[in-house]
Design a protein around this nucleic acid. Structure first.
Lengths: 343, 343
DNA sequence: TTGTAGGCGTTATCAA
DNA sequence: TTGATAACGCCTACAA
């Protein structure tokens, strides 16, 4: 119940030395006698002294804090990205402040404002679906705070980026469906203001073109890729008697929705309709059939983003050229797309 | 690239008034002329002023920050608890600092230390599996920092708690298996130093006793309840020709492992062996058969914990009696335990 | 090697 | 209603 915390002044008083000596001893300042240093450290431990980071940060003009904004914490990719970021920051004395935008633009802006108040030294962000305007990020950059974006980035911004090669992943998945013999492959696409969904669509188109397939307008269905929308989209296709023999979904959730609809209707997956999703959510391995998907290596991406940001913060090279690191997703082929007698 | 932030002194200089007036205007201090207040606010907005929370916190001796430690962010229950906490704190001006312990004791201690440095006003925690000693929490309490524990709590500590009625949940699930006709129900139990697993075991025992079942030692298997361990446990039972007609697992993950083993061996679930898990992980709904489980209402629990903590922080009643709020989990019956002709 | 003094940006107290 | 001043806890010139 003792409420006031121990400060360096308390230590100084106790030891009859000055507070600055205490500070120097605790921080291993290079010119201080070994005895004082050890005595101070010992006393600090005894008195259960805890440095006040607010004071240190205020004094140094550096909070040693990194702000992280992700759309949703309960996504396989993002939770692993967080783990990757932590694995880099834990051994340092950077703290991370994690905010979920819940894919909402206003929430994202509020979090940025909170970061500003908290004097974060840098920001790692993956944009909300709802974000179509990036002025809030521009303004942070203008104030000299480094920003690293990952996965959902913006071409408008000159930041370091760590991304997935969504084009390559989508291309590979679609080619796989075509190689399995699918001839009428439909694409469930996400909001096109997000780079990730644009690129997945482009990868799909490229693969289709390589196989000489025409893509009519009704072969690309754009929505927000929830399970419910996947279900509804499949239902629509079925009602219009336009059921494809392959679906490449830009999300595992809408792939799941479609799978559930097809199973309900007794349509054989993959033999009548093959399915592939994106993100390798844990459930994709467990459905029957298991869903073919693309693993995105969230932990690696998080690590790279954190390293880039810390470099940027510590080198102060705010003018140096910004870089983009790209990881290639790995296609994980499962039964939802693997036809029995395909060769 | 302009690096120094705008301060109230900059505003004061610009407006030819004192910094204290600026401060008062921005904080809606009750005795200040309407004109100055509005002028100051307008100018602050124009100059893109952002209050420095570090300075405010230092001066006020209150950081308006809540530290949250959870075992793992990628668990259904915990990610929802986080969402619940955020839903309470977002409308306030409390920030939350989230740390994962990864179920590791040392990591948990390091996070507590980081919280102390950051002068958090209170802590919400659910213990790591690896935590068997709670001195680090006692020491925080002794320093007068309020702590609210949820789900995995400690009887050694006099804190506000928000918990699941694990006993009732386990009791209900086991009774359900028994009502389905199971007579030899085995329990996959977790580490017994954690309250949640002790209580789940007790609920299981109570139900078994009510049905007049004997519980021999080999009917309770204690491990850390991973998918792999569930698989191995089922395998062992099978190899020992001791395959039960019901498994109540204290975790969905080990329930999943067992299910996968049984399916691999062609053992009918639920008809030969019925299964129930705990936590209602998203995948439980998607396996075939879907796994019966218990929903724990993480969001509600997170909300309650956050409310309790904020009350505690703001009322300063550090001596008042501590309270425990208990939520009752809901049994969600799915095909893994629902026998065809059970009535 | 150590001490003194000043300031990081705010807010609270006292005085005007 | 506003201004001057001091202080939150720490760090760092500068001085000794």
């Amino acid at each position: 119940m003792q409420n006031r915390n121990i400060t360096i002044h308390d230590l100084a008083a106790k030891l009859n030395i000055s507070a600055s000596t205490v500070s120097r001893a605790l921080n291993d300042y290079y010119r201080i006698s070994k005895e004082t240093r050890e005595l101070v450290k010992k006393t600090a431990a005894e008195m259960n002294y805890k440095p006040n980071k607010l004071a240190t940060s205020l004094r140094k003009g550096k909070a040693n804090t990194i702000g992280v904004i992700i759309p949703r914490i309960d996504r396989h990719f993002f939770s692993h990205a967080i783990a990757g970021i932590e694995s880099v920051t834990n051994p340092t004395d950077y703290n991370i402040l994690i905010c979920q935008s819940n894919d909402d633009y206003e929430t994202e802006k509020l979090s940025m404002a909170a970061f500003a108040r908290n004097q974060v030294d840098g920001i790692i962000i993956s944009l909300a679906t709802g974000t179509q305007n990036v002025d809030h990020i521009k303004s942070v950059l203008k104030r000299g705070v480094p920003v690293v974006m990952f996965d959902r980035v913006s071409p408008e911004l000159d930041t370091d980026n760590v991304i997935n090669d969504n084009f390559a992943g989508a291309y590979e998945a679609t080619k796989h469906l075509l190689a399995q013999g699918c001839r009428n492959v439909i694409h469930f696409a996400g909001p096109q203001h997000l780079n990730v969904y644009r690129e997945r669509m482009n990868g799909y188109k490229k693969a289709m073109e390589e196989y000489g397939m025409n893509i009519s307008n009704d072969m690309i269905l754009i929505n927000t890729l929830t399970r419910e929308q996947g279900f509804e989209a499949a239902k629509q296709l079925w009602q219009n008697k336009h059921l494809p023999d392959g679906i490449f979904s830009a999300s595992d959730f809408s792939a799941l929705g479609a799978l559930l609809f097809l199973k309900e209707k007794g349509i054989a997956v993959p033999d009548e309709t093959a399915i592939a999703g994106f993100a390798n959510e844990p459930f994709t391995e467990l459905t029957e059939p298991a869903i073919t998907s693309l693993e995105q290596y969230g932990a690696e991406i998080g690590k790279s983003a954190a390293r880039l940001l810390i470099d940027r913060i510590e080198s102060n090279q705010q003018n140096s050229v910004s870089q983009t690191i790209t990881f290639r997703p790995r296609l994980i082929i499962r039964d939802s797309s693997l036809k029995q007698e395909s060769n």
